[in-house]
Design a binder for these strands. Structure first.
Lengths: 217, 217
DNA sequence: TAGATTGTTAATCGATTAACAATC
DNA sequence: TAGATTGTTAATCGATTAACAATC
């Protein structure tokens, strides 16, 4: 059936809009007042108020003219959008400093993320505790993924082994990879990858910093 | 002097281009061959080859028709752009799990980042070691910033105290903030903020995952 | 030379902004 | 009601893509 373009179902958000919606989410969580205006949101994020209003039109939500947006119900709408009230079980592969920090990260609670296991093949780490979790061998991956219905796998291993781990995770049924390793992963179609290489993100900072006009002496 | 629009000096890159250039940087670091084509870069990143070529025109670099881009010299150009060969000293505030993981992160070496100090005001942490660094009290901030010419301050404290720490860092002379706390910071003009709230970045993953067509049963 | 690949210009597309209408 | 703020439409701007010229 051609000429059938607009179908019901998941609305696609412009990527930039989605990024801003995440920032609104953070901002609203901090907000103490009952209502907030597009002007105030914009000011705090250094963007334009019409941008904020436009972004919000993508949501199934309306503000009140003359009053602003009702903070808690806009937050509910965003929680719905991101699924933060639905808990997703995730696993972490790699019990190095970063893997351990993530396993212990308490910020996940508010976001519907629960770390159910951490894996490592280093015999010295196997069986040790990371918070309340015991470090498990990779052989247990499949079992844990099935048992906890895990869709998201977090990669915290060195770059050299990241692709191998990605392949393994996918083979064991993972649908999305949260990649903290400093490499570009190749994955089959349909598998999501979210890159989170921490050093790479510092590049933006370094780039902008170096270009800031030099101070007068 | 009006009508003077195009001035020499730092070229401004479109934000999206800059993001991709970071990915090219990562990709080229892994590349074993001497040359790489725009087609291959595009394939690995799931983008279009003309996008890659266009992005590269922003750089002071030319490829070779019929051959491709010379990997090591393109990498040099990108290193120059991001300043990865120039070491920036950074400090970390907050010696929790994440702060400690960052202090120990060995991926920074390749990116021209050196962690010179970690701070915390919790008396139980003061004086303890994080890798080779001793946890220092916030009172030492100014001294360390001056001594090591620190421009980048990393915030790894809980959301509640993040704004206070940001204010303090700026007062002590920091020019850029790398913010791992789950809040939006307000800073004076001229101060850079790079947000890196880890849980927030999981929102994208959750959002997309929830919208993936449900599997047939 | 022919062929492959880069580089560039023009066309298209999409996102942002401006202007203003709607609304409480 | 008047005024403030949202919501929407149209204009602008910028980024992506397509087409093709340049080049080795």
């Amino acid at each position: 059936m051609p000429a059938e373009k607009k179908h019901k179902g998941p609305i696609m958000f412009p990527k930039a809009t989605l990024e801003r919606l995440k920032l609104y989410h953070t901002l609203l969580q901090e907000e103490k007042n009952e209502y907030i205006s597009s002007d105030e949101i914009a000011r705090k994020l250094s963007i334009k108020p019409e941008q904020v209003r436009k972004d919000i039109t993508y949501l199934d939500y309306s503000g009140k003219p003359k009053v602003g947006y009702h903070v808690s119900s806009l937050l509910d709408t965003l929680d719905e959008l991101f699924g933060t009230k639905v808990t997703d079980n995730i696993i972490i592969v790699g019990a190095g400093h970063l893997g351990k920090a993530l396993a212990n990260y308490d910020g996940f609670e508010n976001y519907g993320i629960s770390v159910v296991a951490i894996f490592d093949n280093n015999p010295e780490k196997l069986g040790t505790y990371v918070g309340e979790l015991v470090v498990l061998p990779l052989d247990d991956l499949g079992r844990v993924i099935r048992r906890f219905n895990v869709k998201i796998g977090t990669i915290c291993v060195p770059g050299e082994s990241a692709q191998k781990i990605a392949d393994l995770l996918i083979k064991k049924g993972i649908k999305a990879i949260w990649n903290f390793a400093p490499v570009i992963l190749e994955v089959p179609e349909g598998i999501l990858v979210e890159n989170e290489d921490i050093a790479r993100s510092a590049l933006t900072l370094k780039h902008l910093l170096d270009r800031t006009p030099t101070e007068k002496i």
